[in-house]
Design a protein around this nucleic acid. Structure first.
Lengths: 212, 212
DNA sequence: GGACTTTGTGTACGATGTCCACATTTGCAG
DNA sequence: CTGCAAATGTGGACATCGTACACAAAGTCC
């Protein structure tokens, strides 16, 4: 019932790119619900391979989940980069730096709400030591945190953020944005109308700018 | 291996308080890791009852998990109340109102770090419609959000928070605190030394006060 | 062209969630 | 009281999952 012979039935004994196929399948699985939906057997099924084949590429289910998580983090980073790219040029460098922060936050929140399953997966694994690992980076080669970091750096250089308030700033910004994202998709703010969600986002970003 | 006859072996046919026993067992299970550890069969085992008995009290595993989640939310609220209670009296009502907010945040963060498993469980269930349900309230009868709400109310009354900034304020405060909690126990900030965690908390609370 | 390594297969086991039929007890109507 | 329905617990069964172990096929390298 889960898989109805939708697999191309490879004729080579080797799959060729199983590891990636499994991660891809994992992404699909997590997409419409969350990391719990990443079933090892189902992933191998979709890759047209016997369950145990997965163990040639991942130590166990959790290892697969970690890889999927990395891929999801990369997508998050890409979403943020994309949002950055839409920024129109602004004369005032200070204002531009501020706009970049807002854009990053918007990209983060947008991604969380558009792809809650992937977002959950991205932050699921308790033992993800490497949110900074290169496999978590977006197309531009930077991870979500590095993106935020450089934006904060610019904020300091343009004189918007006093240097003595720079240390720890990412903790605050990131916490606020991440917190809202989580509350919106899993927490008690889930079920807010899109309009209300936007209001909350606006309100949050104002407070971030004021509080940073 | 999991359960080694540690159950009092009831002699009555009826358990008497199975529903509660199951929730209690669920809390124990979730305590040292998270909601995934809430195994229905294991819970019944600990209650000294056959697996299917659970279905007389819960529709399925997820229903049990919801109940456990509510209980965890209640513990969170209690932790916050406790933190509130430790506040020494202060003359300045404005300063006192501010201190209450800080205390609530501290209680929230402390609970998350002391009992990460319970904290995860509290916010695990995707369909928790009732974070405001009475079963989620602490000893004082208020839920975590109600506690925050009344504190914000006081902030307005004492003139600290301009009334026009009141709407949506809880989204911001809560997001920031919740976000840090999550990042600290699951996210990339996990593994921060306790001292560093405290610093991050301090920094966050300053920014919250500034940004609110 | 053979030996070694990598990758996929087959079979099997224990554990879990849940279903269905049955057993025991409680509580209430008469 | 008595008897019967509702509530609660038991037993057995099934599909599914993660994973272990032994084996098979296909690359790789001398």
């Amino acid at each position: 019932m889960a898989s109805s012979a939708g697999v191309p039935k490879r004729n080579t004994y080797r799959h060729g790119d199983l590891r990636n196929a499994l991660i891809q399948a994992g992404l699909e699985l997590t997409r419409d619900s969350g990391p719990d939906a990443v079933i090892l057997r189902e992933a191998t099924r979709r890759a047209g391979v016997v369950p145990n084949a997965a163990y040639r590429h991942f130590a166990d289910r959790r290892a697969l989940l970690r890889a999927v998580s990395q891929a999801a983090l990369a997508q998050l980073a890409s979403a943020m980069e994309t949002e950055l790219a839409t920024l129109p040029a602004v004369d005032d460098p200070a204002e531009y730096a501020r706009a970049r922060i807002r854009a990053l936050a918007t990209g983060y929140l947008r991604f969380a709400q558009t792809e809650p399953g992937l977002f959950r997966a991205a932050f699921s694994t308790t033992d993800m030591v490497d949110t900074g690992g290169e496999s978590a980076a977006g197309a531009g080669g930077l991870t979500a945190f590095q993106l935020l970091g450089t934006a904060l750096e610019d904020l300091v250089e343009t004189g918007v953020l006093p240097p003595d308030r720079r240390p720890g700033a990412e903790y605050f910004v990131w916490s606020a944005v991440h917190g809202l994202a989580v509350l919106l998709i899993d927490g008690p703010l889930r079920g807010l109308l899109p309009t209300q969600a936007r209001e909350a986002e606006q309100r949050l970003m104002e407070s971030i700018e004021r509080g940073i």
